[in-house]
Design a protein around this nucleic acid. Structure first.
Lengths: 208, 208
DNA sequence: GGTCATTGTGTTCATTTGAACTTGCGAGCA
DNA sequence: TGCTCGCAAGTTCAAATGAACACAATGACC
């Protein structure tokens, strides 16, 4: 898709953005590669834009936008507890944010992505422990075996969604916790797509 | 710390960065607030910089750096395998990147941060499974009980660092794996600070 | 009353910066 | 052979942009 040289230019732009926090100007790119003219740079930028690796704001300074900042990084709100409906999610219930790049999250564009802080060890056998932050997506197509956040008795719990004999139930991944068979409807708030765990150095984590 | 007006300016800059991907110029800030002169903007920028809410690259266009992009988000390289010395880490051995915000990672500024993809189930009892990405920091102060990446026989392995009777050894968190007592020196490449797991929906993950 | 930080206006300047035009070279292709 | 495409040099322009200088109003604090 890109020639080697074109990739070099793109990577230089991205690394400058990461390291200095600002986009390089055409002349800075020129000098880095030792070009005697800016025209070369202009051509690379034009090509990269045409191929979709770059967005430019015409006539503005340092106005290059690479997928690094535009597509990849998502700011995900962490909720302590999810109330009844997704509609009632407000800024108030947000505990904090995690920023992750889209690829490491597997997030699709359509669904709303959010995060929950895990409390308790009911999913310990799925290697999800107390304090972990699970990233979920509000999607419709729940599949058998997915780990989901569901609303049971006004509380949000994380369980595995299991379909058996045509009827779904929620399975805790810990023999000490009971499975939940929904009385009427099952309200799925999100499907787990990713997990983030802080590991404070120096504090030994208990083993199960 | 900041006056209301100063906060307004800072928030405008940050929201432009998030939405458009580029930093506003002084004139854009000026027009947004309806100032008749750029000098007002210059004063705000000066104040914000003095108070530490902003970094500026003098004489460069759109070169404002706010904590949004500078402090919070770190781009962490993922290595498949770490060769002998940290010095030999090059772009070539990088498998990809994860972007995380500094807070969720607990990363300190001094140490180099990097990531490793976990292979095998030797840390299963610490709830680290095959395919997980562990974020590590290259630091000197390894403490008893930390999970570390260490170099053993030319291979990088993830183990728990345990100090016993004044002598350190590496403990696998899986009864099926042996502990490693270093013959001579123990080469710690990094201390685990965080973990990221992708959970592909629809594919049921095996339990231990 | 005096000092200081904050918030402004009005104006001017030098630099930075994106962009356009022309020319040249070599590789691959019909 | 002629054609396109990637890569690059050389030159020039106009717009975008940060920065400086002088002046002024307001409110807090002593």
């Amino acid at each position: 898709m890109l020639t080697e040289r074109q990739r070099d230019v793109l990577e230089f732009i991205q690394s400058e953005q990461r390291e200095k926090g600002i986009t390089p100007s055409t002349r800075e790119i020129q000098h880095h590669f030792g070009f005697a003219s800016q025209t070369s740079v202009m051509q690379y930028l034009g090509t990269l834009e045409r191929k979709g690796f770059l967005d430019r704001h015409a006539r503005k300074a340092r106005a290059l936008i690479t997928p690094v900042q535009k597509v990849r990084i998502t700011d995900v709100p962490i909720y302590g507890q999810i109330p009844a409906g997704m509609a009632t999610l407000t800024e108030q219930t947000i505990e904090g944010h995690v920023s992750l790049d889209t690829r490491s999250v597997n997030a699709s564009k359509n669904g709303k992505t959010f995060a929950l802080r895990v409390r308790g060890d009911s999913m310990i056998d799925a290697h999800i422990v107390d304090g972990d932050i699970v990233i979920l997506e509000d999607r419709k197509d729940v599949q058998n075996g997915d780990i989901v956040a569901a609303l049971i008795d006004g509380e949000t719990t994380l369980k595995r969604y299991v379909m058996e004999h045509g009827r779904p139930y929620l399975k805790a991944e810990n023999p000490l916790f009971p499975n939940l068979v929904p009385a009427r409807e099952l309200r799925i708030q999100g499907v787990m797509v990713s997990l983030v765990r802080k590991q404070p150095p120096g504090s030994r984590r208990k083993r199960s």
